[in-house]
């Protein structure tokens, strides 16, 4: 059943951001709708990660506003509604003493709040998340002993344990071998199509994104949005990557 992709859950309005004088992002406008599987692509240094950090409240825009579920990001408190899968496989301590179950439990912590311990219901949700990514049988293994692909599934489960409405993935396939990547895309597709979870997949690799996404945004200082990603021809992408200052603007479907 096709999801109704009209309800805005994240609104980025006229957002600019710069380090020192130089603008990294300029006048960004776009919305993420409920049920979207949005691919965000662009060259390295084009501002993808900065845009992600702005939406996640890790950076504050120099100009413009970002709203999550209708609330300005600066006043947003319900962070459990927003899941995050970082570029983990590349930069995490493989000797860290934690089991798969302990890592996925972390996903519940923000939602529980300070001074409150996990109860039986939390543990049930954690186990469900592990089952959804098919990692239940690894629950007592050390996180560092798993392969890159398995670790990435565990981090997906951690994000899911908070029962979020949208999950942001930052270059999630970096450091994951190619066969596991295919399985990983299938998992994401399943989460989006079957559980109607909104996904935002940030990557410099077009190949990684272009398979299953329902929307595509191209970020290189400015942002180009496309809700028919299949239409994106190689010619167009070449143009987007090749000419940094001359970007085709396509109308956002909500305008």
């Amino acid at each position: 059943m096709p999801v109704d992709h009209t309800k805005n859950i994240i609104e980025v309005e006229n957002v600019s951001f710069g380090y020192n004088e130089e603008l990294v992002l300029e006048k960004i406008n776009f919305n993420i709708h409920k049920g979207d599987y949005l691919g965000v692509i662009g060259p390295n240094g084009g501002g993808k990660s900065t845009l992600l950090k702005l939406i996640l409240g890790l950076l504050t825009p120099s100009q413009g506003t970002i709203k999550l579920f209708g609330i300005d990001v600066r006043n947003f408190k319900e962070w459990w509604r927003v899941g995050y899968v970082p570029q983990k496989v590349v930069n995490f301590d493989v000797n860290f003493p934690a089991t798969v179950f302990e890592v996925v439990s972390m996903g519940r912590y923000g939602r529980k709040g300070l001074f409150r311990q996990l109860n039986r219901e939390d543990r049930k949700i954690i186990e469900q998340s592990l089952e959804q990514v098919e990692m239940m049988e690894y629950r007592n293994r050390m996180i560092g002993d798993l392969s890159g692909g398995q670790q990435q599934r565990v981090f997906i489960a951690r994000a899911m344990a908070a029962q979020p409405e949208v999950i942001f993935l930052d270059e999630p396939t970096a450091g994951v071998d190619v066969p596991s990547q295919g399985k990983f895309y299938d998992l994401l597709k399943k989460l989006n199509r079957e559980l109607e979870l909104t996904l935002v997949f940030v990557s410099h690799d077009i190949e990684a994104v272009v398979h299953d996404v329902t929307e595509l945004a191209f970020v290189n200082k400015a942002l180009t949005y496309d809700d028919h990603p299949i239409d994106i021809s190689h010619h167009k992408l070449e143009k987007l990557y090749g000419h940094k200052k001359h970007i085709l603007y396509k109308d956002n479907k909500n305008k």
């Binding site: 408190k77 995050y84 970082p86 983990k88 301590d93 972390m106 311990q117 951690r158």
Partner: peptide, 19 residues
Amino acid sequence: KELIYITFDEESAQVSGIP
């Protein structure tokens, strides 16, 4: 819970709303 999360992955802990 907050300490173990921050120790393992400070950025994700921050995104999840942990102070």
